[in-house]
Structures are given as C-alpha cells and as structure tokens.
Design a protein around this nucleic acid. Sequence first.
DNA 1: GAATAAAACGAACGGTCGTGCTATTCAGCG
DNA 2: CGCTGAATAGCACGACCGTTCGTTTTATTC
Lengths: 221, 221
Amino acid sequence: MIVKALKKGQALHTDDGREILAPDASKGERTRTRILDEAAALASENGVSAVTLGPLAERLGMSKSGLFAHFKSKEALQVEVLARTSERFVEAVIAPIRQEKDRAKRLPLFFANWLDWIEHPSLGSGRGGCPILAAYFEFDDVPGPVREAAANHNGQLYAYIRRLVHFARPDADADAMAAAIDGLSLSHLLRVRLINDRDARKHTMSAFDALLKNPPLQRGA
Amino acid sequence: MIVKALKKGQALHTDDGREILAPDASKGERTRTRILDEAAALASENGVSAVTLGPLAERLGMSKSGLFAHFKSKEALQVEVLARTSERFVEAVIAPIRQEKDRAKRLPLFFANWLDWIEHPSLGSGRGGCPILAAYFEFDDVPGPVREAAANHNGQLYAYIRRLVHFARPDADADAMAAAIDGLSLSHLLRVRLINDRDARKHTMSAFDALLKNPPLQRGA
DNA sequence: GAATAAAACGAACGGTCGTGCTATTCAGCG
DNA sequence: CGCTGAATAGCACGACCGTTCGTTTTATTC
C-alpha cells in the first residue's frame, strides 16, 4: 500500500491508498494523472525503459519540458508508472476477490483474475503486457530506484500469495507454492504474448489445478 | 551435420548456415567470436537491448566502426548474441544429461542444470542473468528479428521439455507440465536475482519435486 | 478587472545512439 | 620482399536522449 503525501489537500485517498482525483483538482494534478496513464500504456507496449520523454510528450500533445516539469527525473516518472500500475493491479485482481467470504476459495479466484489481467491488458495494464512483470526482468540487474520499486512490489505480491495459500491449503509449503504460482503466471505471459499459444490458458489451468490438489507439503514431502 | 570442405583459415558452416570455428580461423573470425562473447556478457548484465556499439567497443578495446563492420546492423548482432548464448545453453544444460541412459531420469537432471545455469551465470551466460530469459520479456511486444529469434528459441525449449516429460511421466499432461517447469525457472530467476532470496533453490526444488510426484494428468485430472 | 502563482512552451545543451564513408594498417599469400 | 584484400580506425552525420533555462501562456485568487 503506497501512501502518498497530500498536496494542498487536492487528492483524496481511499483506505487502501488508491488515489482518487477530487472533482476540483488543480490543473497540474489532472494533467499529471493524464501523463501517468499514457506512460503506463506506453510501458505496457514497449517496456518501462521505453517510457521516454519525447515520444510520451508527443502522444500527449504537449512539450517535452512541460511534461518533464511534473517529475524531477525520468526515473521518478518510471517509478510512479510502476506505482500506478500496481494500484490498478490491486483494483482489478485483488480487490474483487474480497467478496468471497470463504477465504479458502480466494486463491483460485485470485489466480483466474491474474490470468485475465495478463491476457487482457485493457483491464489496466495498457495495450501490451503487464509493465510490472516486464520491469522485473528489465531491471533485475540494473541498480536504481526502479529496480527497488520492482523488487518491493514483487516481495509484497509473494507475501500476499503466501497468505492466500495458507488459507487454501494450510498443509502446503507456502513458499514453494508461491514460487510455483508466480512461475505459472510468468510462463503464461510468455505463451500468450511471445509464442501466441491459443491453448495457453488450458495448460496453465491444468497445471494450477494439479498444484492445488497436490501441493508441495511442509517440511519436505 | 554436413561439413563442407574448406580452405584453411576459413569458417566452417553447417548445412543450416550456422558457423563453427575452425581451429586456425582467420583473424576476422577470431575477433568476431571475441565480440560475440563480450556482447553476451554485456547482455547478461544489462539486457539484450543494452548491447550497444559504443560501450561494447570500449570493452573490447576497439573502435565502434571496426566492431560494426563485422555485422550488418545492431539487430543482427543481438540476434547472434542470442544464438551464441543458446549454443552455450545446450552445451551447459542439455548436453551433459545425455550421459544418463535412463531417459526417465533425465528431466530432474535437466532441471537441476537449468537452475545452475540461472544461479551461476559464469557457466556461460555472463556475470548477470540469462540473456535469453531477459530477451523474452524485453521483446515480447517489440516486433522484429530479435523477437522472432527469442520466440523460436522458446518454442524449441518447450518442445524439448515436453519430450523429457514424456519419458519421465508418460501419464502427465506434457503441455501443462512444461508450462509449470518453465514457470518455475522464471520465478527462480526473479527470486535469485531480483529479491535475493537465499532459500530460492529450496523452494523451487520443493515445488518441482511435488510436481514430478503429482503431475497434471492427461485429459484433465 | 488586476495581481500573483502555476503550468506549459521553445530552444538549446552535452551526451550517446546507430550507421555510413574513407583512409590506414595488417595478415596472408606468391 | 612486395602485393592484395581483409580488418580496423578515424571521422562525421543525423537522430534522439534527459535536462536546464528563460519566456510566455494559462489558472487561480483578490
């Protein structure tokens, strides 16, 4: 959950940290949001490192310098793109499953939503692939704030998955299970976006079902 | 492989066009190989798209243009880096397991070698992460020859994994199983390189063992 | 309305990128 | 040795990068 500093009391926040623009937000805040949305779309199509000032400014119909003035640096922009995408991920994938009161049933719901998110990026990750997953591999060896943001997001996601596993299968090795589930989503993304496998979802779900039925157990087998 | 007769100092070519270095290759061929090795190391550290002429030339102690003359374009260079890394992958991960005559036992050997390759990139993928895996996510939405090369490699790897699965567990859904195994390696890479989890291997192996013991079955459970 | 602050612009910078050209050096041959 | 072609260097180009700065336009407030 990312808590942002309030500026002049313009932006409102929900209890889980998401930002909602006040109807009378200042012009700066409004265009800032527009920039972030377009930047997220760009990141989705060509990766986070493709979020560059020039093309982004052209898409927005504004000048490079006018755009740049909203952020202290390009890296800060990229970090905020990740944060915004993360908010949308929570909104599209995690929030809906809270309606299921039986916590044991939440893991499959979460996974299905995640696959939807990966397959249909219009849910919030843009026209291309999920920028966060892309950022993991783009920045895993590139030190800097973007890498830290990506690592932090990944760590939080793991913790969340482990919690879901604990409710679904308390007897399972939650760490191993989280690794397998995270891996399935990564592999799913590649089969959908890279090799264009029409049966990707069938195979992914088959593996997931088997995993849930016979998970890795605690204390080694 | 059909080996043509050759003039001394010239490169050998297989019938599919790939290049094999003769022991007394010409100077051009030798530096070309040196370039590819250094480029692979660079790709490993910062991603395939970070294979740029300037820094690469400096590492090699030669001029940008002298380097460039060996390839028709930067993209051609990047494709060849992928091809070379792929050769090393076969050499380090796939070739050794052929010594195991019981084909049913080859899958676990393959997977262990793969994890070694990911964890210990000095095996051939450079100082950083495996360039091929990185390229998957870097280029999954960027059309061009690099993307095609990556997709092709991924497809071949999947076919190979499916074959290993067939020998190890003929009753398993090979497609689902391959997806799970590929995913485990991707997730492993992230935990090792991004979030620096010291117990990554333990969790990955725990999931793999469970998967092998209770794989997704054909025709849906 | 005027006054003031915020936002956006345009031009320019130093830098790096990929890629051509031409000249030079060098390896391998008779 | 000298010859010849391959290998490499030097240089320049246009494009794009992130960033800065001074100016101008637009919002907001009185």
